[in-house]
Design a protein around this nucleic acid. Structure first.
Lengths: 212, 212
DNA sequence: TAAGTTAATGACTTGTTGGTCATTAACTTA
DNA sequence: TAAGTTAATGACCAACAAGTCATTAACTTA
């Protein structure tokens, strides 16, 4: 038995470790993911992982920071430079989110964080500040814009944000919990299309409606 | 140091253990709940717990069996003897669910099961068969009844069931994850009222609508 | 009240995992 | 090629928790 050769690849380790961590976090959750498994999936030993990330929480934060926060930043840029219909902006934000998060392994993070928020308040806090609050602010700004221009009807802002976000969140949560056990695999694309269509109808300012 | 007196209370143990288990499961989740804590909260030692429940999974199943399944059974009875508007029936089912589950500690179980379904497929299976599938069948029967009588419009059944159930589920999931961290405590009663009102509008068969 | 039954205990075993660190070896440079 | 640097390793430690079982003591019955 001769030990396999060690390769020194300082540059490549972080992204390989983050990729392995994402896959396992999404599959098993935060608490149930073993760092030794993350390391071996990335082709290194456990000790090496600790060379790059101080502890499990730091590893998770790095996954979010590298994978999800950039999409928020992109969306903030899209919103900042957008001119035209507010509903179109909403569609663009949703589309970008779906492409970069919903169609990748990152789609499993929302369920993870909802599942473990209570047991790891530090991570919940981090995610809330860096993802949730910024996403809500983004949707809120879009809705406020549409309400100001008369494109959308006047609604309680927090409730309206919930109405926009909740179905998407629920879709991801379900997919990563009972999704596999359930036989009737509903098409997420179609679900989203229906959701968008409902929003188009529901948000629109009707001609005969009084402005509150 | 004299040991506290042992009391022999065979009859009272199960319900006390289930109460303690519910409180801790809802607070910490399934995996993170320690059986020693359940026992001590119920005022007994860990060994005693194992006298009444074979293992952690059996304890959880008993919590669901004793606390949630009876509400499903009640609702099945309500539906069976109901005459009159299908929407009223839907309201009655929702109201009973809210009173017996939503306003009690059992409200935390849906989040727990969604959070841990993948790591404990045996529990997920149990919950799916005994709660989810029966609840969906109940809502489905109610909707089918309303569609048959012309009270509700014709909708894809699985989607319609989702539309009815998802917002309630989301409300409970959020309350038991980020609920505490979030400042703006939205009133769940008002949320449910809005939900019900949306359903009343959304499900209604309009006069000029074509029957598919 | 003595013997029998069984509810209750808690120390113990077993297995797991986050995190550490002394050692090794790949690579660099003089 | 010899000495120095540092990426990488994996044995190890400490903490924790599920589940077991020999022992204890509360209660019952003859």
């Amino acid at each position: 038995m001769t030990a396999p050769p060690r390769k020194r690849r300082k540059e490549a380790r972080p992204s390989e470790l983050l990729g392995a961590a994402l896959a396992l976090f999404v599959d098993k959750g935060f608490a149930a993911t073993r760092l030794e498994d993350v390391a071996s999936r990335a082709g290194v030993s456990k000790g090496t992982l600790y060379l790059y990330y101080a502890n499990k929480a730091a590893l998770f934060k790095a996954v979010v920071q590298e994978g999800i926060v950039p999409v928020i930043v992109e969306n903030e840029a899209i919103a900042a430079r957008h001119t035209g219909s507010s509903f179109t902006l909403l569609e663009m934000l949703l589309h970008n989110w779906w492409t970069k998060i919903g169609q990748t392994d990152y789609a499993g993070i929302p369920k993870l964080i909802v599942a473990e928020a209570r047991n790891f308040p530090e991570l919940a806090q981090f995610y809330y500040e860096n993802v949730i609050s910024r996403a809500r602010a983004l949707v809120g700004a879009c809705l406020r814009r549409g309400m100001a221009s008369g494109e959308f009807r006047q609604l309680d802002m927090e409730t309206a944000i919930d109405v926009v976000i909740a179905p998407i969140l629920m879709l991801l949560i379900w997919r990563y919990s009972f999704g596999c056990c359930q036989q009737g695999e509903s098409d997420p694309e179609r679900y989203l299309q229906i959701h968008t269509e409902l929003l188009r109808q529901g948000l629109r300012q009707l001609e005969n409606e009084s402005q509150v």
